[in-house]
């Protein structure tokens, strides 16, 4: 038997002892596409579906500890969407209901797609990712785990077990641009977190580079311009500068889904809108109706 369905992490590690070249299978929503299209031919598979330690989540002090096996659907649940609104918003944009029932946070990290929808949120929350193997555990930042398109620093036999993120941190926004309203790979996405207590803005961009990009110059600039007591910007003109800095942080490419120019443009629009939403109650404007006959 070369498909292992371990019930706990120890059993998973044992499976790797028996089959060092076994491949990890989480929700299957990326893995199986590759198998179905003959791009991946696993000699053996360690399926994490039943691993108890990877399930569910818990609160530890001010931190949410998410099991790597948590699904997007679970991240959209009532409690977690209060604690991690940005992650819930991102989860809702992933694939379809079917995919959100199967796909996991750990899988999104392990796949390390530049378009992974949860990744900008995790980056903006400064998430810590705990990986484990028989040899022990280590904790990584997102940029230490994911180092290129579909490339991670996971070692042989190493499993992503937990993601630790601050609970209910400040205000959070996630915006994703796609060409239809469901089942769409991000053309660009943006996560923005404003930590009111820590007086900092964090902005992460997805699908506009080989890995998720933190727009650090934009973050620093806008953090220095916010009137933190009144939660407003002192000079509305700073929004334009912030937007420009976000755009210059992006490193997009042209591909069949969009163009580099549009992606750069779109992350700017999204970051600007996200900032606008968290800084003020964004009052809607008027809906103008133009007539084709006019």
């Amino acid at each position: 038997m070369t498909v292992f369905v371990p019930a706990c992490l120890e059993e998973a590690f044992d499976a790797f002892d028996k089959c060092p070249d076994a491949q990890l299978l989480a929700g299957g929503t990326d893995f199986m596409v590759e198998v179905n299209f003959a791009l991946r031919r696993p000699p053996a598979v360690v399926c994490l579906r039943k691993v108890e330690e990877l399930k569910g989540w818990r609160l530890e002090h001010a931190e949410v500890v998410l099991g790597a096996g948590i699904t997007y659907a679970e991240l959209m649940g009532p409690q977690l969407s209060d604690l991690l609104p940005g992650l819930a918003q991102a989860s809702r944009t992933v694939g379809s209901p079917q995919i959100r029932n199967a796909g996991t946070l750990g899988g999104n990290l392990g796949t390390a797609s530049p378009a992974g929808d949860s990744l900008p949120v995790l980056a903006a929350l400064d998430a810590r990712i705990v990986v484990a193997s028989k040899k022990g555990r280590r904790s990584l930042g997102l940029d230490e785990l994911i180092i290129g398109p579909k490339r991670t620093t996971l070692g042989p036999g190493e499993v992503i077990v937990e993601v630790r993120v601050p609970a209910a941190l400040g205000s959070q926004e996630f915006l994703k641009v796609g060409t239809r309203n469901a089942m769409v790979i991000a053309v660009a996405n943006v996560a923005l977190v404003v930590d009111w207590a820590g007086q900092s803005v964090r902005c992460a961009l997805g699908s506009v580079g080989p890995v998720v990009i933190r727009a650090r110059d934009a973050e620093e600039f806008i953090s220095s311009r916010i009137d933190w007591a009144r939660r407003t910007l002192t000079d509305e003109g700073d929004v334009a500068e912030f937007t420009a800095l976000v755009r210059s942080a992006a490193r997009p490419i042209d591909d069949h889904r969009s163009t580099a120019d549009y992606r750069r443009h779109a992350v700017g629009v999204c970051a600007q809108r996200a900032l606008g939403r968290v800084l003020a109650d964004h009052n809607g404007g008027t809906w103008e109706q133009t007539s084709w006959a006019s």
Binding site: T93, E173, L175, K176, N181, G285, T290, W292
Partner: peptide, 21 residues
């Protein structure tokens, strides 16, 4: 879901225009 961009939450009402063709 009733705005352009849907669940991606990209729309800003001030910048949405309606057209009839």
């Amino acid at each position: 879901l009733e705005l352009p961009g849907g669940a991606g939450r990209t729309a800003d009402r001030d910048r949405v225009r309606r057209g009839v063709g």
